[in-house]
């Protein structure tokens, strides 16, 4: 069944990002400016969302000194359901990051591309993960299988060494260039680091959308 832009139909993008960050890390409190930086948003645009979600009983707030911290409200009766929903959508990046963590020192850059990153995800679409670094694909398999189970989506990695990636960019490899030109959700690294890995030969990689 095609269910395009699943979460977009339910709530605005900013609210998705706020819920994805807070509900999937229920043990962590965030103050507004810190959360804005994490999500790449203006602090002013967050305030209305944080207030509405607190009013609804989905978040709690507490004051510490001059800062107001926001956190998932564990007594929210639909917390589990919301978390399940977000894990399959906005919470994707955090889940992948967690399962890639043991290999993080060897990963130069990792991002999601394809329909999920383009926000054209289907309810059953796979997650396409592009990974550059000194990592063997076989070392990813068990972690990504666990991530796939948690997300209820298959995660398909493409792995290149830094040297091979730069070589593909120089040779104008069609697949690699098409990935670079399109939106991404960064799991590790940033568009700046990706540009450096490409050796400036890629032109301008796709704009960073999240994380």
């Amino acid at each position: 069944m095609r269910t395009a832009k699943l979460l977009d139909a339910l709530m605005p993008r900013t609210r998705q990002q706020v819920l994805g960050a807070l509900l999937l890390r229920p043990d962590r409190g965030w103050f507004g400016r810190e959360l804005a930086r994490h999500l790449g948003l203006q602090p002013s645009s967050l305030q209305r969302e944080l207030a509405a979600l607190t009013e609804a009983g989905i978040l709690t707030q507490r004051r510490e000194g001059k800062q107001v911290y926001y956190q998932a409200d564990p007594s929210c009766p639909i917390l589990g359901e919301l978390q399940g929903l977000l894990l399959k959508t906005a919470g994707l990046v955090d889940v992948l990051r967690k399962h890639l963590k043991p290999l993080a020192p060897d990963i130069a850059c990792a991002f999601v591309y394809g329909s999920v990153a383009r926000a054209e995800e289907l309810s059953d679409s796979d997650v396409d993960l592009f990974l550059i670094g000194d990592v063997k694909p076989s070392a990813l398999a068990n972690g990504l299988e666990q991530a796939s189970q948690r997300l209820a989506r298959t995660v398909n990695p493409t792995v290149l060494s830094s040297q091979e990636f730069a070589r593909c960019v120089r040779a104008k490899d069609r697949f690699v260039l098409s990935v670079l030109e399109r939106p991404k959700l960064f799991v590790q690294g940033s568009s700046h680091e990706l540009d450096e890995l490409a050796g400036g030969a890629a032109g301008r990689p796709g704009r960073r959308r999240s994380s």
Binding site: S138, T158, E164
Partner: peptide
């Protein structure tokens, strides 16, 4: 997407 990298083949 027809792309297999060298590291994927060698691994």
């Amino acid at each position: 997407s027809p792309h297999i990298s060298r590291v994927e083949a060698e691994d």
